[in-house]
Design a protein around this nucleic acid. Structure first.
Length: 476
RNA sequence: GGCGCCAUAGCCAAGGGGUAAGGCAGAGGUCUGCAAAACCUUCACCCCCGGUUCAAAUCCGGGUGGCGCCUCCA
């Protein structure tokens, strides 16, 4: 498999350090609110990568954190007059509500920052001993000038960072810092802020240190893949590298992956600009399954725009796949002829298309995890399968194989093709009763009654399709 | 200023030296009592200008336009 490595700015053949095993880490949510579509992209992306790696036989150890101590959480807790635990626990629960229904699998390890404080303190202690960190009145800082390779991931140069962008807010930085790029490892306690004991007094950790500590604790000094949004390249991942490698002396990650953003009107969706849509909001209009499909319909390094019409297009496309699976199974069930009696030719064509879809799917995923192309492979199989459904002599076996393959490939992407996660557990008796009544009315050529009954079924959220083998009922 | 990304049909989106996948939407048709779904047909010379080449949308250079990071933003 080829992966684009941000470190080298090129696609590289992916070879894990240990054959057959992959250790990966992705930056998780700061739990102070519902997460939005832009946050969901990396969650879905790295979950899908993990699924694919497992599908191709790797044993994957996947770690994703919860940042449960941070300025925004503290502020939220103060605003609500409650504790940070109350806030973070609440939004961790809410995270799982969305994540589970987006079919984001639970990571192997999902530590909270507050559970990793001893490891962070230990790491900071080693940095102090090694001379990479120093103490100021308000905290412990990392001295970026001590780490010769600082900037190797982002390719930023320290002296240029000094000048910085005009909009940079330098007021909140401690002006005693040795270098403008130095960042805080440990913040000394302020009034009304939660704190933990440390060799440098009561305080709380800086943001970057948690990932370094968690990776080391759960996965080791060097991991295979480290992922996150492109906005984390600098400073977050650069700082992780500086923290970890200054202590371990070995590369923190062998492959760095960064997903592009979700945009609104071509501009980055972000909490600070307010142009964001939470998953909880979007789901009022489009199901979770559509959101996941939407995210995966573009290659992860390309920006995707968010809009109603795009979600709608995604929903229609996903429904096309569902219809196809429904049709394949329905047709197979009604295929009365045995395999020996059926037309080898159309079955053969279909079997060939199944193989081709598998190959194309793998080729797409092997090329820097191109889920857009992988979905195309599914659509191509759907096309051939739909044609096969119209062949009177196609074998039930091949139809079912096609349905299975579509479901299998969809599952690798975590797609809920049939919408079973929406609580659809089959056709209710009430609906079937109406369907049968309508079939009877139709037989008697009482079309007025039959149409009325169909309207009733439609009103209940189901759809009747008349086929040569009788009515087919599906969820609308 | 530094470091990057992007520009393909009405919309979305792959591809990437030999003459444009797929999806959505649209139009026409087949099937149907009507419908739905499906199927068939139809819909692009790939931002502009140079250059390299037998051949460029694809490589190189220069533009133009859009976007991101350099702020504890995924």
């Amino acid at each position: 498999m080829k992966l684009y490595n941000t470190m080298s700015r090129s696609k590289e053949e992916f070879v894990p350090a240990e054959a057959g095993k992959v250790k990966m880490y992705a930056c998780g949510p700061t739990v102070y609110n519902f997460f939005h579509l832009g946050n969901a992209r990396p969650f879905v992306t790295y979950d899908t990568l993990r699924r694919y790696l497992e599908y191709t036989g790797y044993e994957v150890e996947f770690c994703q954190n919860f940042t449960d101590i941070d300025d925004r959480i503290i502020k939220r807790a103060q605003d609500e007059g409650t504790s940070i635990e109350e806030i973070s626990e609440r939004y961790i629960r809410e995270y799982y509500v969305d994540a589970d229904r987006l079919r984001i699998g639970r990571p192997t390890y999902q530590p909270k920052a507050t559970q990793t404080i001893p490891e962070m303190i230990e790491l900071i202690g080693e940095l102090m001993e090694n001379g990479y960190a120093y103490e100021l009145s308000d905290g412990i800082y990392y001295d970026v000038s001590k780490f010769a390779e600082y900037g190797k991931l982002s390719r930023y140069h320290l002296d240029e960072l000094v000048e910085g962008a005009g909009e940079r807010d330098t007021k909140r930085e401690n002006d005693e810092k040795r270098n403008p790029g130095d960042f805080v490892l440990w913040k000394k306690k302020k009034e009304n802020e939660p704190s933990w004991p440390s060799p440098w007094g009561e305080g709380r950790p800086g943001w970057h240190i948690e990932c370094s500590a968690m990776i080391r604790k759960h996965l080791g000094d060097t991991i295979d893949i480290h992922g996150g949004g492109q906005d984390l390249i600098f400073p977050h991942h650069e700082n992780e590298i500086a923290q970890s490698e200054a202590v371990t002396g070995v590369p923190l990650a062998r492959y760095w992956m960064h997903n592009a953003f979700v945009n609104v009107d071509n501009e980055k969706m972000s909490k600070s600009t307010g142009n964001f849509f939470t998953i909880r909001d979007i789901v009022k209009k489009y199901p979770y399954r559509v959101i996941r499909f939407f995210i995966l319909s573009g290659q992860y390094r390309m920006p995707i725009n968010f809009s109603d019409s795009l979600l709608e297009a995604a929903e229609n496309g996903l429904n096309r796949i569902r219809e196809s699976v429904d049709n394949l199974r329905f047709t197979a069930k009604n295929q009365k002829k045995s395999s020996e009696e059926t037309d080898d030719r159309s079955s053969w064509d279909l079997m060939e298309a199944i193989d081709k879809a598998s190959r194309d799917f793998l080729d797409a995923m092997e090329d820097d995890f191109n889920t857009a192309d992988a979905i195309t492979a599914i659509f191509q199989l759907v096309r051939t399968a739909n044609i096969a459904c119209q062949e009177p002599l196609v074998s039930a076996d091949s139809l079912l194989s096609a349905a299975d393959k579509v479901m299998e490939l969809g599952e690798v992407l975590g797609l809920d093709i049939l919408g079973t996660d929406d609580g659809d557990t089959g056709i209710p008796d009430e609906v079937m009763r109406l369907v049968n009544k309508r079939a009877q009315a139709k037989k008697e050529r009482n079309f007025a009654l039959s149409d009325e009954l169909r309207d009733q079924v439609t009103a209940l959220g189901y759809q009747i399709k008349d086929t040569p083998s009788g009515p087919q009922v599906t969820k609308a």
